[in-house]
């Protein structure tokens, strides 16, 4: 493996991790608030669909990306209504939400031929190795890398983050302190779905394949695994997402990998999924937020 291959694999890997990173950051917020959002895949699909549709209708790529934000918010409100207000089983409804990938049959084949250009950051991109790997990426990738510390600050250095985490650990105590658990969870789910939906849209923006059936190919569930692997810490989540991106990027260099080049393409395609399984197995000591996935009934509310 010579240096060009290594650089290419990592550079492609960082670009490919972008959608998963957005989704995992969003998911971390929801899970910290006590909502296990298994519907990531479905929300990502909607984001991808909206972005592809906007581009086909002649809008710019960034219009498509920005359009995913209100769509994510609406989906977040709908999901929050099911989970928070109706107390629907989060795992079951999340699974169903995810299988709204059935929807995409209806709308597949929205072709897109453009994708975001890579932006070389002056000076930094001239650094050998690192420059070529990190600083020649599409803008959504830089934004995702910037979003990670912001989500960390939001969760760990603000009052809002503290409230949210308390709602995910011991909602009864949060309520006793005079805070509204449903309001906190609503906010968290909406913010979470906005990030996830944006991630889905970025999938369209960084590749030029357009919207095809099952375009997300399980990335929403990969994001779910990355959150566990990253222990709900945005910085570790970046590492987990990179692992996934690189294992996905390897297939494009398979021909140059000596004796490994004889492996069938299906083996390379399955690598990211196998890596994800290994990651969940290795992350066995991760502990979910205590109240994650458990519906909360406010005191005195009759259901």
């Amino acid at each position: 493996m010579n240096s060009t291959i290594v650089i290419s694999v990592f550079a492609t890997g960082i670009a490919l991790m972008t959608p998963v990173l957005w989704a995992a950051l969003g998911e971390a917020i929801a899970e910290r608030a006590g909502v296990l959002n298994i519907g990531i895949e479905g929300v990502m699909l909607f984001g991808a669909l909206v972005c592809a549709w906007a581009i086909r209708e002649g809008a710019g790529i960034w219009t498509g990306l920005l359009l995913a934000i209100p769509v994510g918010a609406v989906l977040g409100l709908a999901l929050a209504y099911l989970w928070v207000s109706r107390g629907a089983d989060q795992i079951v409804s999340g699974i169903i939400g995810a299988t709204s990938l059935l929807f995409d049959e209806f709308l597949k084949g929205v072709g897109v031929v453009t994708s975001l250009d890579e932006i070389s950051i002056p000076l930094l991109s001239d650094i050998p190795w690192i420059g070529e790997i990190v600083f020649q990426q599409p803008s959504v990738t830089y934004l995702a890398l910037l979003a990670a510390p912001l989500v960390f600050l939001l969760l760990n250095r603000t009052w809002f983050g503290l409230y949210i985490r308390s709602a995910g650990e011991k909602p009864r105590a949060t309520e006793t302190a005079g805070l509204s658990v449903p309001a906190l969870r609503y906010t968290a789910v909406v913010v979470s779905c906005v990030l996830i939906c944006f991630g889905g849209a970025s999938l369209i923006a960084i590749t030029s394949g357009g919207f095809v059936t099952n375009v997300t190919a399980g990335q929403g569930f990969v994001a779910l695994a990355i959150v566990v692997l990253g222990r709900w810490n945005p910085f570790l989540i970046v590492g987990g997402a990179l692992l996934f991106g690189v294992s996905q990027a390897l297939q494009f260099q398979a021909q140059s990998l000596g004796f490994l080049s004889s492996l069938p393409p299906e083996a390379w395609l399955s690598l990211p999924y196998l890596v994800t399984i290994v990651a969940v197995v290795v992350a066995k000591s991760s502990r979910y937020p205590n109240a994650c996935g458990v519906p909360f009934t406010p005191a005195g509310a009759a259901r």
Partner: peptide, 16 residues
Amino acid sequence: AFGANEVIVTLMLNFV
């Protein structure tokens, strides 16, 4: 054996 979340594992195994 490892406490691996079965939702993630079974889904990933689907793709494989």
